[in-house]
Amino acid sequence: MSLEQVADDITDEARARADEIRAEAEERAAEIISEADVDAEEINDSRAAEVDRQIEQQREQALSSAKLEAKQQRLEARRDVLGDVYDAIEDALIALPDDKREELTRSLLDAAAEEFDDGADVSVYGRADDEQLITSILSEYDGFSYGGPRECLGGVVVESETSRVRVNNTFDSILDSVWDEHLKELSAHLFEQ
């Protein structure tokens, strides 16, 4: 065997070994690329799931916030309506016809007078516009006198220094009491759903 043939055999062997190494390297590269593709897919899926979760969370927060805002607006609108109803009642009480105002004032004064001893010096206060009405009614009561105006819609505030009793029978106090007592019913009636 000649030197040339030995060199050719070594070269062939080296080429075969190189081809084998290249094939192994390509196979390993394909495995690495395949693993990288799987990792990339997993990362992509994970990120997509995270983005979907964040989008859903933000959507739920926005929806919750919108519901809360709508509820607050409904409550505010209801408060406004109830305020308008209350104001309308106050206006109706101020505009009562004279005979009805006198009837109610007498009734409220009679109820208050029961709280005082006979012969007690009693002062009666009322709406400035009702002074004449109150003084005319007081002529029927011994020891009762007009004490001056009070800021109210009507009715009377009756008090005595000697017995330290004070009765607030104004339209305002009665309206507030009735309003508080029946507000739930009124709301249910006004805002039936």
Rank of each mutant, 00 (worst) to 15 (best):
E131N: 05
L82M: 15
D172Y: 01
R74A: 10
L108T: 08
E103F: 07
A92M: 09
I174D: 00
E42D: 05
N44S: 14
A49D: 09
L96W: 02
A62M: 06
R59H: 07
F116R: 15
F116D: 08
V38C: 00
D110W: 10
A36K: 09
E140A: 15
E26M: 04
S136M: 02
E42C: 00
S177Y: 10
A25P: 00
D180E: 13
A188N: 14
G154M: 02
N44C: 04
L175Q: 07
R74W: 03
V6Q: 14
S160Y: 11
Q54V: 10
E42G: 02
V165F: 02
R22S: 07
Q132T: 15
D84T: 11
N168F: 01
Q58S: 08
V6K: 13
S65L: 08
A95H: 00
S46L: 12
V124F: 11
E159H: 08
I43K: 14
E159S: 15
K100G: 01
E114L: 14
K100N: 01
L82R: 06
V156E: 00
E35R: 15
D91E: 12
F171I: 03
L133V: 00
D176Q: 13
A16T: 08
Q132E: 15
N169H: 14
L75R: 14
D180C: 01
P149R: 06
R59W: 05
A188I: 05
W179K: 01
R101M: 08
N169S: 12
E50V: 02
L183H: 00
E90C: 10
A18F: 09
C152H: 00
S107N: 13
V158N: 12
E140I: 06
P97F: 01
Q5E: 12
Q61Y: 10
L109D: 14
A48K: 14
R127V: 04
D12I: 04
K67H: 06
D87E: 13
P149N: 03
Q5F: 04
T105G: 10
V178T: 01
I10T: 07
A188Q: 13
G126P: 08
A49S: 10
S145Q: 14
S187A: 04
L190C: 01
G155C: 06
D12L: 11
Q193A: 11
D118Q: 15
A188L: 09
V158L: 09
T135E: 15
E140V: 09
H189V: 01
R74L: 10
D117L: 14
E24M: 00
S163G: 01
V167G: 11
I137L: 15
D91I: 00
D142I: 11
A113H: 15
E102P: 05
S64F: 08
I174E: 04
W179Q: 01
L63G: 04
I55M: 11
E114Y: 07
G154Y: 00
S160P: 08
F116I: 05
R15D: 05
A29W: 03
S187P: 03
D45P: 02
